[in-house]
Computed example of a mutant assay.
Amino acid sequence: MNTTTASDGRATRWQEHNLQRRRDLVASTLRAIRRHGAGVGMDEVAAAAGTSKTVIYRHFGGRTGLYVAVVEWVHAFIRSKLIPALESAADMDPAHLVAELTDRYLSLVERDPEIYQFVVTRPTDSDPVADPVTGITGRIGDELAEVLRVWLDARGLDTNAATAWGHGIVGYVWAVADKWITTGHKRPRAEIVAFTAQLFTPAFANQPPATEGNR
Rank of each mutant, 00 (worst) to 15 (best):
T4I: 15
T4N: 11
T5Y: 09
T5M: 12
A6F: 04
D8W: 00
T12C: 01
R13P: 08
Q15K: 14
Q20T: 15
R21F: 03
R22P: 06
R23Y: 09
L25D: 04
L25F: 04
V26M: 11
L30I: 10
I33E: 09
R35F: 07
R35M: 02
A38Q: 09
A38T: 06
G39P: 05
M42C: 06
M42V: 09
M42D: 02
D43M: 10
D43L: 10
E44S: 08
A46D: 11
A47Q: 11
A49W: 04
A49M: 04
T51S: 03
T51Y: 02
K53D: 13
K53V: 06
T54M: 11
V55H: 02
I56D: 02
H59Y: 12
F60Q: 07
F60E: 08
G61W: 03
G61N: 05
R63K: 13
T64G: 01
L66Y: 05
V68K: 01
V68P: 01
V71L: 02
E72N: 12
H75F: 00
H75P: 08
H75K: 06
H75Y: 06
A76K: 09
F77A: 14
I78M: 08
R79L: 13
S80G: 12
K81Y: 07
I83S: 05
I83Q: 12
P84I: 03
P84M: 05
S88Q: 15
A90N: 00
D91M: 08
H96M: 13
H96I: 15
T102K: 04
S107H: 10
V109R: 04
E110R: 09
E110N: 08
P113V: 02
E114G: 06
Y116F: 13
Y116A: 05
R122E: 09
D125V: 01
P128G: 08
P128L: 08
I136F: 04
I136P: 00
T137G: 02
R139D: 13
I140Y: 01
I140W: 00
G141R: 05
D142E: 15
D142M: 07
D142C: 01
D142I: 05
E143C: 02
E143L: 13
A145E: 07
L148F: 06
R149K: 13
R149A: 13
R149Y: 11
D153Y: 11
A154E: 13
G156K: 00
L157R: 11
D158M: 00
T159Y: 05
N160W: 09
A164I: 11
G166E: 08
H167T: 12
G168N: 06
I169V: 15
Y172I: 11
W174H: 09
A177N: 03
A177L: 09
D178R: 11
K179F: 14
W180I: 07
I181S: 14
I181A: 07
T182C: 03
K186A: 14
K186G: 15
R189W: 05
E191M: 09
E191H: 12
F195V: 15
T196K: 06
A197N: 03
Q198D: 15
L199C: 06
T201R: 14
A203W: 12
F204N: 01
A205Q: 15
N206Y: 08
Q207A: 12
P208G: 08
P209H: 10
P209M: 08
A210Q: 11
G213I: 12
G213L: 10
R215I: 12
